[in-house]
Each structure stands twice: as C-alpha cells, then as structure tokens.
Simulated assay, not measured.
Amino acid sequence: MGYAKSNSPERFAPDAYPVHAALPDLCTTIPPALLPDPALHPQTFDQNLDRNNSTCVFAPGDDEPVLGRIQVAVSRPGADTGDSAADRLIEVRRGYDEEKSGTRTPFAPVGGFGEEAKLAVATLEDFAYADLAVRDGVLLINIYVAMPGNDPLAPGDVAKGIAAELLRTLPQDGR
C-alpha cells in the first residue's frame, strides 16, 4: 500500500515538484579574472558535478609554489526528495544556519548577497583566510579562500567577488 502511494502520479507532478535546471560547472563558470593569482587553476580531479551540486577547487599546479586555494560549492535540495517546496526551503535554511557553526572564527552577516550571507575572516602566520556562506532561495553557496599575506580583508573581497558572479549566473533563487 505504501509503495503504490509513494509512486502515485500526484507525488511526482511537475508543478508540485519541479525539476530544476542543472547547476553549471563551476570550474568553467568562474572567470579567471576573479582569482587572486593566475597560477590558480581548476582541479577537475577534485570536482563534484550533478544536477543539484557543483564544486570546484582552484589551486596551483604540482610544480608551482603554494599560492593559495579556493574552494567553491553550490548545492540545493533535489526536487525528487518528495518534500514540498516549503520543506526544501526549511532544509536549506537549516543547512545555512549550521554552515561553519563548528569553526572557531566568528561569522558576521554580510549584506547584498542573496537572501542572507555570512563571512568569517582570519589570518594565521603568512596566510589570510575567508569563509563565505550565501543562501538565495533554495540555493546554498559556500566559498573558502586561502591566500598568502596578512590582510584579512583580501580573501573576503575575493570570496565576495566570486559570490556576486555566481549570483548573476546561477538560476535565480536556485530554481
């Protein structure tokens, strides 16, 4: 009985559970001009790409000195989860609230990015770091930037530039 009900046509009605356009390949979507160093290249061996998840890591090649690292991840709940649109939004909000909650560096709200965004910056020895989490509808964007130097604002500016570009090019509100 439960099996027949779970496969009922109403459960998979396109208007109730829309299938979103696939998220783009972040390794080709992010313009190289936004990266702080031209020696940072997409590491496609470390890439995740499917309809509702896309990740890319930008790092120097094996024979280049350590020049920093950028990790970008975009995700949204799948439309096939059987949850309502409201349930998926609650899931994303919960994920945003929990994002980076276990880190020692405090996050501060950042305006102008999606429906809500938070940023943490820090320096350690000769590197500066930034973590940016952005929620826009059912879309969750996470950007981590590590770069040489002691200016804690520099990696935050890089992360914000990448986030602004992604919000311009990704499906609005993640749909």
Results as ranks from 00 to 15, higher is better:
residue 21 A to Q: 07
residue 72 V to Q: 01
residue 4 A to E: 14
residue 123 T to F: 09
residue 12 F to R: 11
residue 108 A to P: 05
residue 29 T to K: 07
residue 22 A to V: 12
residue 124 L to F: 15
residue 125 E to L: 15
residue 161 G to H: 04
residue 92 V to H: 01
residue 21 A to E: 08
residue 129 Y to G: 05
residue 139 L to E: 02
residue 112 G to Y: 14
residue 140 L to Y: 01
residue 97 D to F: 08
residue 141 I to E: 01
residue 92 V to S: 00
residue 69 R to K: 13
residue 113 F to W: 04
residue 144 Y to W: 09
residue 122 A to P: 06
residue 25 D to I: 10
residue 1 M to F: 12
residue 101 S to C: 12
residue 49 L to R: 07
residue 63 D to Q: 11
residue 9 P to V: 09
residue 162 I to Q: 01
residue 61 G to D: 12
residue 151 D to G: 10
residue 15 D to N: 11
residue 147 M to C: 06
residue 117 A to Q: 03
residue 27 C to R: 05
residue 154 A to C: 11
residue 99 E to L: 12
residue 136 D to C: 00
residue 106 P to T: 11
residue 169 T to H: 00
residue 140 L to R: 02
residue 172 Q to E: 13
residue 107 F to P: 03
residue 159 A to M: 06
residue 143 I to D: 01
residue 168 R to E: 12
residue 44 T to W: 01
residue 69 R to P: 00
residue 137 G to L: 01
residue 142 N to E: 14
residue 55 T to M: 09
residue 118 K to R: 15
residue 40 L to F: 03
residue 169 T to G: 00
residue 47 Q to M: 11
residue 91 E to I: 03
residue 147 M to W: 01
residue 16 A to G: 00
residue 21 A to M: 00
residue 75 S to E: 04
residue 51 R to F: 01
residue 8 S to P: 07
residue 85 A to N: 05
residue 171 P to K: 06
residue 139 L to M: 09
